[in-house]
Design a protein around this nucleic acid. Sequence first.
DNA 1: ATGTATGCAAACCATTTGCAATGAC
DNA 2: GTCATTGCAAATGGTTTGCATACAT
Lengths: 159, 159
Amino acid sequence: MDSEKIRKQAKDEFTEYLTFRKHRKTSERFAILDHIYTIKGHFNIDSLFNSMLEDASFRVSRSTLYNTIELLLDCGLVVKHQFGANSAQYERAYGNENHDHIICIDCGEVRESSSNLISDAQLKSIKKFKVSYYSMYIYGVCSKCSHARRMKLNRMRTK
Amino acid sequence: MDSEKIRKQAKDEFTEYLTFRKHRKTSERFAILDHIYTIKGHFNIDSLFNSMLEDASFRVSRSTLYNTIELLLDCGLVVKHQFGANSAQYERAYGNENHDHIICIDCGEVRESSSNLISDAQLKSIKKFKVSYYSMYIYGVCSKCSHARRMKLNRMRTK
DNA sequence: ATGTATGCAAACCATTTGCAATGAC
DNA sequence: GTCATTGCAAATGGTTTGCATACAT
């Protein structure tokens, strides 16, 4: 399978990064990376903690998760999102190409959109800045909440 | 001045919103809106609290700031941003048209870009969703940090 | 007069920090 | 053997909540 190859590639990059930066190659770090690369969508520290325990019977402390994620962000293997005030969401950088997010300001639901609204050429045009990734957040009201909101307003008006 | 007109417009919209939703028109609410519409760039709850106290000698509790901002977000007069893990940043919705942000992942500096990368037509094409605003976040390394990072790596390599 | 809005203090919760024990080098 | 890393527990800090008081309706 192709995802196998991506995991191997990610591990190699991480190894190189750790060596270059003179960080230690611990089993925790590789287990975390490997597990992250089995997750398809978004995850947060808590869901990562739980899924590692359940799926892989591997227990790492939350502190170590935070530490390791920091390294993975730094070397570009993981991307971080901050939707609203909730806990930070992460996703692997390879094998998850689309970075457009459609967020409902009422219910908080995050829908991903594959239609990339931005071209690479546009990103390259930014001066004095080395772009590593971008996130597009489109806020609004989803059809479900739009409906609920109409109902509520109707009730208020006729009260 | 034109900003005078914008403030008036914002106040009228807020009044209409409060009336329609049957919320009370308190002096705090109008003072907060009015003050926000004197701020040009980003602000957070803390800076808003302080600047209201200093510039307008008006003291509102942080609770009320949070409550009122919630209303202003709901009626679209204020826009909220969440850059990294820091406190939420806000900005007024009118008289601040550009919503592209260039964020340095090293030092956290946020630069605003006036070149709108997205067209309105592209946003309208999203199905089953009523777009109220969007935010473009471009993460990467600014020239200052890019330089600092190179220096640091050089030191590590030759240690 | 009624009940929403305000302001204080306490609670909350994701994340960070301090520190002793562990284990990579 | 040394010192970075781990994991626990405690601290932090922005935001939310509970509740008594104030005030818009």
